[in-house]
């Protein structure tokens, strides 16, 4: 068993490449996989039909050789096309390229030819046989036909019944289908607070209140400067809340609220990162209670996944 863990949102948390540093991948949604499959079918069958029509029109071939060619081509676009495409483009068929998803090996190593072949051979049972049978639809009147139809639908639904969203072929080949990661580097918010003298000064007791989770929520807010009156109102609300919570006493002019938030973000982040380096990680605003409840926990080594906020936090226990 590879110990891949999948969070409910489809995020793979512990995919470990040979370098030993976990990388996050997001599982492709079932919808985009279905879409890619449909696109592939349309592309392959469409191009073969077009090709045959063109050849027929041009009069290069006709009759028997054309039929032979057609038969061979229709064989080729069923399983071999997927195998060759995924080998050449490293886990991507044309449909997957369009939908920006791709196949990766679940064990953190490179995708091997065996895996590509195995996962695509199963496609015959999982995808093509149901489609041809349902299109032919002549045998579906008897109860045996009905049983077969139900069974086929169940096989098609296998990706919905497991967390890794694997179809049978994926299970045999030990592969996953993930979204193509997109890397966009946004500017560092702590850089933008570049006033020469500090307009707002926060004391340590101001910065004691919040933890990493709140910091990153604030970061998300600051990434989108307000454009409408609504936005300004929201900024005001956030500012007021922060001022109240941290017990900040100096006046904050209305025009400087955005600057205040930026400055607060920067100093709060510096403070938290410092505490973190000293072994005092503060996940969120409940960190003070945690320290009270179990004293030895302060000596706990810094967790490697400290960078992620824990959203589903149990409510505070009354003591």
């Amino acid at each position: 068993m590879t110990g891949i863990q999948v969070a409910p949102g489809g995020r793979i948390d512990n995919f470990i490449p040979p370098e030993g540093v976990p990388i996050t991948f997001n599982l492709a949604s079932r919808g985009s996989r279905l879409g890619a499959q449909i696109l592939d079918i349309l592309i392959t069958y469409g191009s073969v039909t077009l090709f045959i029509i063109l050849v027929y029109w041009s009069g290069l071939m006709g009759g028997a050789p054309l039929t032979a060619l057609f038969l061979l081509l229709t064989f080729f676009i069923r399983i071999p096309y997927y195998i060759v495409a995924e080998l050449v483009w490293n886990g991507r068929t044309l449909g997957k390229r369009i939908n920006t998803i791709r196949v990766i090996s679940a064990n953190g190593r490179r995708l091997t030819p065996h895996q590509v072949v195995a996962r695509n051979l199963m496609k015959e049972v999982e995808v093509f046989m149901p489609i041809t049978t349902l299109f032919a639809a002549q045998d579906l009147n008897t109860w045996a036909g009905l049983v077969i139809a139900v069974w086929m639908v169940l096989v098609l639904l296998v990706p919905f019944f497991n967390r890794k969203r694997q179809r049978l072929g994926d299970m045999i080949a030990d592969t996953l289908v993930v979204d193509m990661p997109k890397a966009v580097l946004m500017r560092d918010l702590s850089d933008s607070a570049k006033s020469t003298e500090r307009q707002f000064v926060f004391n340590p007791e101001h910065l004691e209140v919040y933890g990493q989770y709140e910091l990153q929520v604030l970061e998300a807010i600051l990434r989108e400067p307000p454009k409408s009156q609504d936005g300004y109102d929201r900024v005001r609300k956030v500012t007021k809340t922060i001022i109240r919570k941290i017990g900040y006493t100096d006046p904050v002019p209305q025009i400087d609220e955005w600057k205040f938030l930026l400055e607060f973000y920067k100093q709060q982040r510096g403070f938290l990162e410092n505490r973190h380096l000293f072994g005092d990680s503060r996940q969120d605003k409940f960190h003070a209670d945690e320290g009270k409840r179990s004293q030895p926990e302060a000596a706990k080594p810094a967790k490697s996944d400290a960078a992620r906020p824990r959203r589903s936090r149990p409510p505070r226990r009354s003591e």
């Binding site: 990388i23 890397a183 973190h276």
Partner: peptide, 20 residues
């Protein structure tokens, strides 16, 4: 960065960059 930075945008970026 996972050890020293709390800039979520940076962490996400590096994660994605490494993945690609």
């Amino acid at each position: 960065a996972r050890a020293i930075s709390m800039d979520k945008a940076l962490l996400t970026y590096l994660d994605r960059l490494c993945a690609r």
